[in-house]
Design a protein around this nucleic acid. Structure first.
Length: 170
DNA sequence: CCCTGATTCGC
DNA sequence: GCGAATCAGG
């Protein structure tokens, strides 16, 4: 099953995960069959460039003179994506920390992907592809996508927040 | 060197 | 519209 276009379903997933604060790589790995570039490209096309971060993006990007040589340099992509097991492996790893609190989130408060709105906490808990997955659903702070607790977590540099899976050969 | 998002541009 | 290549910053 190969989808070459962005189905509405996927776009929605993309938007939610992006706004939830996941990195493009993680979203790409989660959706599968797409690179982080694809995700970022789509995000930009959707007009969702920055959610809360973009410190130096204001700097003028330098234009690039496109050398013809690059076309020949196009490496054939082996592409080992679609590897759900791999994605699952690191997804589990990153949730190791916040789980302590997330574990306590009452069932009645938990929300599904499509039930999120401006007033609910967008914090993702667990593996997005797992049926166990849910969003915090707490009362979001005004102007923020997270509740009080998760805002603190989200905007604090958790040392182990970033874990990487597939490495691309450039 | 690893990652991140941003941008450009050929398709 | 799509995404690879590339860039610049952390």
């Amino acid at each position: 099953m190969t989808v070459l276009t962005w189905s509405d379903d996927r776009v929605e997933q993309l938007k939610k995960l992006w706004e939830a604060g996941l990195s493009a790589s993680q979203i790409a790995a989660e959706l599968g069959n797409v690179t982080r570039n694809a995700v970022i490209g789509k995000v930009h096309r959707l007009g969702l460039s920055g959610r809360a971060k973009s410190p130096s993006s204001a700097a003028p990007r330098q234009r690039k003179p496109r050398p013809a040589a690059q076309q020949m340099m196009r490496v054939s992509r082996p592409v080992s994506r679609g590897n759900t097991a791999l994605a699952h492996a690191f997804e589990v790893e990153i949730e190791a920390d916040p789980v302590a609190f997330d574990n306590v989130v009452p069932m009645s408060q938990r929300l599904s992907l499509l039930e999120l709105n401006e007033a609910t906490c967008h914090w993702p808990v667990g593996d997005p592809s797992s049926p166990e997955f849910f969003f915090c659903g707490g009362k979001a702070l005004t102007g923020l996508p997270y509740c009080a607790h998760h805002s603190r977590v989200a905007y604090q540099p958790a040392a182990d927040r970033r874990r990487q899976a597939p490495k691309q050969t450039r």
